Simulated scan of single mutants.
Amino acid sequence: MDKTALITGATSGIGKATAFLFAEHGINIIICGRRKERLKEIQKALNEKVKVHILSFDIRDKHAVHNAINTLPEDFSKIDILINNAGNAHGLDSVEQGNIEDWDAMLDINVKGLLYISKAIIPKMIANKSGHIINIGSTAGKEVYPNGNVYCASKHAVDALNQGMRIDLNKYGIKVGAINPGLVETEFSEVRFKGDKEKANTVYKGFTPLKPEDIADIIHFAVTRPYHVNIADLVVMPTAQASSTIVNKEL
């Protein structure tokens, strides 16, 4: 398929796995993230398979987002697929003990960052009268768990934005859908616990969590359906997980 996808948060986890899978299937990619060296490594690994362009910027900075998109060369100017994957959790505190800087980081990245990049890409899709947006949400956007407060709020916002985008862009023929994963073994918990790898590793002990490749496979499935098929909202969890608070550690 002669298509181009832009993937945010592509330096690790789900974003990186999606970039590699897309490349395997001939989808040209624009990979975005703050860690430029990692982006260069991915570009080097995939350059022989598809066309790869890197954009290094902080998605929290609206001016940096729009400036980066405006630098895209002609070969990458038509974006067919947008994967809104960038997102983070910071801290795991009850609301009265929450850190305001953590709150700002989650809302700025998970909500405002998604809006900034979407705002920059959607006009291109409207002009082309086609496009597909996949928003990476979370089971935290479907239910709230203890000490999840602001992170859950940010992912509930993604859930609402996914629905709002789908309604507003329907008249342009642009497909919009969300993939909402449960427990996926990535750098997520390490970031949440601010570099405490030992604490982060305990999150995934005693059961088999989802892998980034599992979600990448679902994303690829969603974007390769026929035009008349849109996967609007999908929740996926490891078999051991029944909800945000119920995980069978014996599986």
Rank of each mutant, 00 (worst) to 15 (best):
E143L: 08
N128S: 13
N88P: 05
P73Y: 12
F22Q: 02
D104E: 15
N70V: 06
T8L: 11
I83R: 08
M1R: 14
I7Q: 11
G91W: 02
A105R: 14
V52M: 08
I117Q: 00
A222E: 05
A160T: 06
K44C: 12
T208F: 09
T239G: 05
A153W: 10
E37A: 15
I246D: 12
E41K: 04
A242K: 15
E213R: 02
V111T: 08
A86K: 08
G9M: 00
V247G: 10
I109S: 05
H66W: 07
I79Q: 10
K16L: 15
K171D: 13
I219T: 11
K112C: 00
P212Q: 09
H63I: 14
F188P: 01
S12N: 07
D58Y: 05
I109M: 00
I136C: 03
T18H: 08
F221K: 09
F193S: 04
V65E: 00
G164N: 14
T208V: 15
L46V: 00
G13D: 00
G177F: 04
D58V: 04
I31Y: 00
N99L: 14
I246P: 05
T71A: 01
G9C: 01
K129W: 01
A127P: 08
G137W: 01
A89Y: 10
R60M: 09
M165G: 07
I218E: 10
G98E: 11
N147S: 06
Q241K: 09
P226T: 01
E37Y: 11
R60Y: 06
N47Q: 13
D61F: 03
L6Q: 02
N180Y: 01
S118Q: 01
L72E: 02
K155H: 07
Y204L: 07
I231D: 02
N110F: 10
D104V: 07
I246V: 15
A45Q: 11
A23C: 08
R166A: 14
A120C: 02
L21I: 09
L39S: 07
V229S: 13
V65C: 06
R35Y: 08
G113E: 12
T208R: 14
A178G: 03
V236S: 06
I7S: 02
A64I: 03
D214L: 11
N70C: 03
T208Y: 11
A17K: 05
S130F: 08
K78T: 14
M106F: 03
V236W: 08
K175G: 11
L183Q: 12
N70Q: 07
I117N: 00
D196G: 13
I30G: 02
E143Q: 14
A240K: 05
A222D: 04
T11P: 02
L115A: 02
P123K: 09
N70G: 03
E74A: 13
H220K: 10
Q97Y: 14
V144C: 13
D168F: 06
P123W: 10
K40I: 15
T202D: 10
A178Q: 05
I136S: 03
V235I: 13
C32H: 10
I83N: 06
G9A: 02
L82V: 13
Q241M: 09
L161Q: 06
